[in-house]
């Protein structure tokens, strides 16, 4: 334990720092979820056993499994046939917090590469409409393949600047804003990921705020917007949500980002002398040692008026 650690700037906010450091040295487990359009969880479990694949159910998310000792899960029969989708466990969180139900109109504002879109589309059922957007056409290609493989018919793809979507796109009941970020929380699978710098904040934070602001504008009254990142930096997390609450606080409020069986850390209300809206304790911070995952941040905002 020393200050030369790449994430030492977060030492004061990360509980059980030694456990955190040790977790970063372990490989990230492979997580998959059963595609309800093609197979039930018990059927997938039976199939995995038949194929000699060892797995462990993810306790907090029915139908999700950690595979053990599978080198290339994207080459297995179950993947090729669209029976499961591969998605990091912690990135299942924001969609679970969208509070989805049948018939909703849902926007995934920064959708590429699309695992969360697929999770939304298969969770919410065929009579919903999902619009998956990303400004990077090339990064959207995997989503097209996933939709084909998984048999998803309720999703529309488009490539536009999410900060500048026209009003003609219409209003949405639910919006996921999984913004581009410094990706600190992905260091277990991407060793190049390191602590964000002031340059990163200068490049990212204005875009993150603009994306969240546009999402809130496109949300129907009574609807929900979930903001998420895979980074620890409060500058990209609480500070972004706080700035929106400061400017438009009367129209939006945070709802607790909590899921049964998934205990993690509350959002911060102070960071390096800066004070955030007290509602931000209802945001969720996930550190790798808490659930043997990557790092993540989620905040869920409800819109109360236009």
């Amino acid at each position: 334990m020393n200050d030369a650690h790449p994430f030492a700037r977060y030492r004061s906010i990360i509980p059980r720092w030694d456990d955190f450091q040790r977790a970063l040295d372990r490989p990230l487990p492979t997580c998959v979820w059963a595609n309800p359009l093609k197979i039930t969880p018990p059927e997938l479990e039976a199939h995995l056993r038949e194929q000699g694949i060892t797995f462990e159910p993810v306790g907090w998310r029915p139908g999700a499994y950690r595979l053990q000792g599978v080198a290339r899960p994207g080459s297995r029969l179950a993947y090729l046939a669209g029976l499961y989708e591969i998605q990091e466990e912690v990135s299942l969180l924001p969609v679970e917090l969208l509070d989805l139900s049948a018939g909703q109109r849902i926007l995934d504002l920064c959708a590429a590469p699309g695992s969360k879109t697929a999770q939304i589309a298969t969770t919410v059922g065929p009579r919903a409409t999902i619009v998956a957007n990303d400004r990077n056409f090339r990064r959207m290609r995997p989503l097209g393949r996933s939709l084909d493989r998984l048999g998803i018919t309720n999703t529309t793809m488009m490539t536009a600047d999410g900060t500048n979507l026209p009003g003609d796109i219409g209003k949405f009941d639910r919006i996921l804003v999984d913004v581009p970020c410094s990706c600190e929380g992905t260091s277990r699978k991407n060793p190049d990921a390191t602590a964000a710098t002031e340059d990163d904040f200068a490049r990212l934070c204005s875009v993150q705020r603009a994306l969240l602001k546009r999402a809130l504008e496109l949300c129907r009254v009574g609807g929900r917007v979930v903001y998420s990142t895979c980074t620890y930096a409060p500058e990209e997390n609480e500070a972004i949500v706080d700035s929106i609450l400061q400017e438009f606080g009367s129209r939006y409020h945070l709802v607790p980002a909590r899921l049964p069986g998934f205990a993690a850390s509350s959002g911060l209300v102070t960071w390096r002398g800066e004070h955030f809206d007290p509602q931000l304790k209802d945001a969720l911070r996930v550190y790798p040692h808490q659930h043997d995952t990557g790092g993540f941040f989620v905040a869920a905002l409800q819109k109360s008026s236009d």
Binding site: R127, L147, N154, T155, P166, D168
Partner: peptide, 17 residues
Amino acid sequence: SRPLQLPLAPQIDRTGI
């Protein structure tokens, strides 16, 4: 899938499969 609540704009790349 029905009910096909597509955006009027911007241009979509694809819908359905």
